[in-house]
Amino acid sequence: MKPAPLDYIRATSVAHAVQVLAENDGDGKVLAGGQSLVPLLAMRLSQPTVLVDLGGLGELSYIRDESGHVEIGAMVRARTVEISSLIADAVPLLPVALRHVGHVTIRNRGTVGGSTAHADPAAELPAVLRALDADVVVTGPSGSRTIGAADFFQGFLTTALAPDEIVTALRVPKSAPGTRVAVQEFARRHGDFAIVAVFAAVELGASGEIAAARIAVAGADQVPVRAAAAEELLAGQDPSPAVLRAAAAEVAGATRPFDDIHGTADYRKKITAVLARRCLEQALPTAERSSAA
């Protein structure tokens, strides 16, 4: 388990990184935290000719409070986001979700850009981006463009990123004050990739009715799934057990899961409904707990 021969270039700027990628015509690969890439190199499942290390790029390490959204630089570590008070206030779903990513030691190194670009269908961050309609900012030889999460994630480990583009930032809309969030993740062991995870952010109206709900699922399709029908069903309703149950069924209905050794598609669909119901119960005031601490 040792990586195949490769070249290594430490990028001095985003432009430099993009230039190296362009010169290598698809055989170059960006190295961020390395928590997914280095094991793939060691297994020789990935054999790029050159690695472009973004590790030295301070310009990609920032969390910025913008009007209406926060912008997170691609090289910000998951752990930094998880413990940021700015993020906790502005996007409360994010830290709750990131706590399910591996372990602290993994999150110390893994970056938000890396997790987004890697696009593992069971990963938490892409599902949150999808739930919150975040934008992914990418930069290529001809400049930057912004891609909505719905369009960015295209398939299993597949994104809208061109071979010579890099992710430079995430723009995550701020949640309305008082938004209630919850995550229900089913993994075989603590810290494992989810078999299925459901993420919810719910705004309540003046009389306790559901004003708006945002729900996404990881592990239940080749891409993160947004449960639009469930969200519609919930909007304007009182959070009664029957409503939550119906919404949970809709969440499961939106998935197109796959088989693997940890569970069949059928199993994933079944537990999606269970997790979705529990997630909504956890998020909503009728349940005993009000946040997924």
Binding site: M1, P3, Y8, R10, L31, G34, Q35, V38, P39, A42, M43, L51, D53, G55, R79, G102, H103, V104, T105, I106, N108, R109
Partner: peptide
């Protein structure tokens, strides 16, 4: 394991724990 799961290779890198099997020396 050399793939990030077992933690036996954990070191402290610039003040935070890191898996040294998931990090290249050049990094």
């Amino acid at each position: 394991c050399e793939h990030g799961v077992c933690g036996a290779c954990t070191v402290v890198l610039d003040g935070c724990t890191a898996r040294s099997c998931c990090t290249l020396a050049v990094q």
